[in-house]
């Protein structure tokens, strides 16, 4: 039975060596690269099953490299291995098509598990962060938002003043912001609501009971 072919990408040499030692018994480490561009080149050159990549790397970070590979049609699974115990990284990694997100210090057990899962077509996230990740997806799940709540509190304030007939300048004076900022809010509100004119804006405000007649 041939061992799965793995590429390691980490700009820290001792880490790369450690990982290589960790993986060798079970996987064939085809190559070790130390930056994002090399990663892209190597992944295209070798036929790989799994790529284990750090996120923070010089020239091109791991996530960008993964996106480039996906766009180039490279089908290898990507597992990110990072120091960043941060949901933002994890989300970004998964959005880039990663099959795993593993924190470096839980590497020995988690990394091997992640590679195995990836090979089976599953996605693996280090348990230390999985909970937070789920939570963050739940919070930002769309659906409950109606149109008006697409606006921020400040935008609703501006909308009300505009609908009441204030000019951007007057809005700026009332809210003690610069005229440029007020103008900015106005433009954002119009584009967020998909409307063009102040008249439509007034109609919108009445319909949503932001102002009353």
């Amino acid at each position: 039975m041939t061992r799965p072919r793995v590429l390691l990408a980490d700009d820290h040499q001792i880490m790369a060596e450690g990982l290589k030692g960790l993986l060798e018994p079970e996987f064939e480490v085809v190559d070790v690269v130390s930056d994002g561009r090399e990663l892209v080149a190597a992944a295209k050159r070798h036929r790989l099953d799994v790529i284990v990549a750090d996120i923070s790397m010089p020239t091109l970070n791991g996530i960008e490299a993964a996106i480039q590979l996906r766009d180039a049609g490279v089908a290898s699974k990507v597992i990110f291995l990072t120091m960043h115990r941060d949901v933002a990284y994890a989300r970004r990694a998964l959005e880039a098509g990663a099959s795993g997100f593993v924190l470096k210090h839980s590497a020995p057990s988690d990394l091997v598990t992640a590679i195995r899962e990836a090979l089976r077509g599953q996605t693996y996230v280090s348990p230390m962060i999985a909970g937070e990740l789920l939570e963050s997806y739940r919070e930002s799940s769309p659906g409950k938002q109606d149109e008006a709540s697409r606006l921020t509190r400040r935008q609703r304030e501006v909308l009300q003043l505009l609908a009441e007939g204030c000019s951007a300048k007057e809005v700026a004076a009332i809210l003690k912001i610069s005229p440029r900022t007020a103008e900015f809010h106005r433009a954002r509100i119009l584009s967020a609501l998909g409307i063009q004119t102040t008249a439509e804006l007034v109609q919108y405000a009445i319909r949503h009971e932001i102002i009353s007649l």
Binding site: H12, I14, M15, G18, L19, G21, L22, M83, K104, H105, S106, A107, P108, S109
Partner: peptide, 13 residues
């Protein structure tokens, strides 16, 4: 942190 992580990996192994 990388060195610490390597140590953690070694200990884990």
């Amino acid at each position: 942190t990388q060195r610490l992580a390597v140590m953690a990996i070694d200990v884990g192994r």
